[in-house]
């Protein structure tokens, strides 16, 4: 461990804002790239399946 206490860890030697802001952005942009395609895929599959069923029942 390079920190003695949790509050020291949070303050990052006075650079806490910069460090935590960076990591928050990193987490956000990574999640966008996973949740986005996941939801798009679910939506697409539901849409295509609906269309196929409609054609089948006609």
């Amino acid at each position: 461990m390079s920190f003695d206490s949790f509050s020291e860890f949070l303050s990052m030697g006075g650079h806490g804002l910069y460090v935590w802001l960076s990591y928050a952005l990193g987490l956000m942009l990574i999640l966008i790239n996973l949740v986005g395609p996941l939801r798009a895929g679910k939506r697409l599959q539901a849409q295509l399946t609906r269309r196929l069923l409609r054609e089948k029942n006609r």
Partner: peptide
């Protein structure tokens, strides 16, 4: 990276 890597001697934790 956040908790175990050593701080830089010039830049500190940034």
């Amino acid at each position: 990276a956040l908790a175990f890597a050593p701080a830089d001697y010039q830049q500190g934790n940034s």
